[in-house]
Amino acid sequence: MSVKDLLLALCVIVAWGVNFVVIKVGLHDMPPFLLAALRFALVALPAIFFVRPPKVPLRWLALYGLTISFGQFAFLFLAINLGMPAGLASLVLQAQAFFTLLLGALLLAEKLRWHHIAGIVIASGGMFLLATTAHGVQAASGVTITTMLLTLAASLCWGMGNITNKVIMRNGSVPVMSLVVWSALIPVGPFLLCSWLFEGQAAIVHSLVHIHLQTILALIYLAFIATVLGYGIWGSLLSRYETWRVAPLSLLVPVVGILSAALLLGETLSMRQVGGAIVIVFGLVINVFGGHLKRPRTVRA
């Protein structure tokens, strides 16, 4: 990966790390399904009037929108709304890297080498260290089997969306921004339907009539920075590199997520959390650069 693309990936990582804090703020005064519906409505409108629709089969566009947009954020917003801490949510969601690698191997016949597996194992150790420091991210107050399963379901949907993106790009050159904007139309209807069924008309009307400035700012961030810019850049990287080069970089997102939660939400960091972050970075380095390591040659007598 070139230096330019690596810097772009790091910008996306920072945006997505802070994204979890913004979600937490947005959910203070708005129910999750309505917040998600407005997020993707802002992504699609008015951009669809200026961006041409992608030349892809409707079934692939629908699958992309239903996995990486509707599925991922329906589960994630619901988990955070039920009490999942922002820092820990950013950590558990990165299981998408594992799902992406596994799906890439099973469906796209991409090879997994020793350094990919070693990097994942090492990074998993760092994730375990972070996850076991409950007092640092206030995990004990909101982590239940339900919220953990919801967040893992969100990560699975993200991984499926990554593979769908890869298939779409393999079948022809598709402008990334076109895919992001037009696929944002797909989840708006399902989110509004879920909001109507599970959150109720009264909650919808009250949230819209009494919307706060911080909710508006959260929606702007979620729509234009985390979605349009974030997924636009991420989709472009996935279309030009193997999934194992791009997906593992997202393991840095929880590091940013926990740090931003500490700075903006007052969540404290322990030494074990710092150690876990360092282990994750080391696992990432092994995963990405381990293939360049060569075994020492045997000197013949």
Rank of each mutant, 00 (worst) to 15 (best):
A226G: 01
I163W: 04
T132A: 13
I145F: 14
T151V: 11
L108P: 04
S124P: 12
V137I: 11
G189F: 15
I117H: 03
L103I: 11
M177L: 15
L213T: 06
H212A: 03
A118S: 15
R170I: 07
M148N: 02
E199P: 03
Q201A: 02
V228R: 04
I204M: 05
L103V: 07
A203K: 01
I120R: 07
Y231W: 05
N162F: 11
F99R: 05
G232Q: 02
V176E: 05
S207M: 04
A123V: 06
L130N: 08
K166E: 01
A154P: 06
I225E: 00
I186Y: 09
C194L: 15
F99C: 04
H116A: 07
G126T: 10
P175A: 08
A140D: 15
T215G: 02
L208P: 00
L222C: 03
K166W: 03
A184H: 12
M177A: 10
G230Y: 03
F198C: 07
A134Q: 12
L217T: 00
K111T: 15
H212Q: 07
G126A: 08
L179T: 10
L149G: 04
G126N: 09
F224M: 00
G126L: 08
A202G: 06
L130M: 14
V205N: 00
M127V: 14
K166P: 04
N165Y: 07
P175E: 01
L108D: 09
K166Y: 04
I211K: 00
F128I: 15
F191W: 14
L149V: 11
